[in-house]
Design a binder for these strands. Structure first.
Lengths: 158, 158
DNA sequence: CTAGGTTGGTTGAACGCTCAATCAGAGCCT
DNA sequence: AGGCTCTGATTGAGCGTTCAACCAACCTAG
């Protein structure tokens, strides 16, 4: 017996449009950043998170938690960012297992240089092609998906 | 002068919810397939495309075009799929540069084995968490994004 | 027919991510 | 104090993707 609830024609159409659009979008943003600023979108996200933190500093695990990265992924990424001089590691004095990641001035400058191009891309490919109603709906849809994934609703800015 | 049209608070909220949800979703589907069927989502897509083609056969470039893969990416992927015996390459008699990718019986079986889990995941994490109105809207939104990316509207099934 | 460009496809190096293994420090519990 | 577990983080191997370089076969203009 086959208990699978297969997708209807209509559902397939929605699914394919969705997944294609989303992969295309991410790909577009990733390429734009890589091409214009020599960083993948992932690293941009890390720089943003650090730039918004007090003292531009975050515990590794907090930084990982903010964007749902695995410890390993973050560790590799920060190693690379350290190598290009955008981030520094500092050991945590109160818990000697812990590490801080600190955004350097060079890192902040790189972020400032990358931001306009990235934001413009996001605006052009996402916000400009949707109506205000669609955008509002997209926000609700995203929150519903996040809830379904077990992520807590994005916390209000402290 | 800074001509960048930055995102408003509200827009940032939507953007972050959207990108987090979407990355979480893709990640979820990818892990599910990798874990339960030992294939990344990309390969699943390739198998699906082949399974729907006449004679389960597609020119490499057509296969790449269908899902917007680069030639290189597809070439590497098919090499891997050939290695595990799910796809075979055949040279094209009329154009000796060309290659056909053919889904093998083993490949079809692997696809059949993987499909229920994948479809179930898609239903649970996407279709089940949205209302019918949201789904309809998501379809429209996706099409608008695709158009913005310069992709032709998904063509009606042949 | 042939030279130059175009097209279909492959290759290899570099890089980012995942997974599993590892390690050291911290927090118990007795 | 000693042992156990848990936690924060790193490491290395393996894999998939990208980019640029490449090779052939096709095509077309002269």
């Amino acid at each position: 017996m086959d208990r699978t609830r297969w997708l209807s024609e209509r559902e397939q159409e929605i699914w394919r449009a969705f997944i294609t659009a989303v992969e295309g979008l991410i790909d577009h943003f990733d390429r734009q950043l890589q091409h214009d600023s020599s960083m993948p979108y992932t690293y941009y996200e890390i720089l943003v998170a650090l730039s918004e933190a007090p003292d531009r500093t975050l515990r590794m695990s907090d930084l990982a938690g903010v964007r749902g990265f695995s410890r390993s992924r973050l560790s590799h990424a920060v190693a690379r960012l350290e190598q290009v001089g955008w981030v520094e590691r500092r050991t945590c004095p109160t818990d000697r297992r812990g590490s801080y990641a600190v955004l350097t001035d060079a890192g902040f400058a790189a972020l400032e240089a990358a931001a306009p191009g990235h934001v413009t891309a996001v605006r052009e490919q996402l916000f400009d092609v949707l109506t205000p109603e669609q955008l509002a709906e997209l926000g609700e849809i995203s929150k519903a998906i996040l809830k379904g994934l077990g992520c807590p609703d994005s916390p209000p800015r402290h």
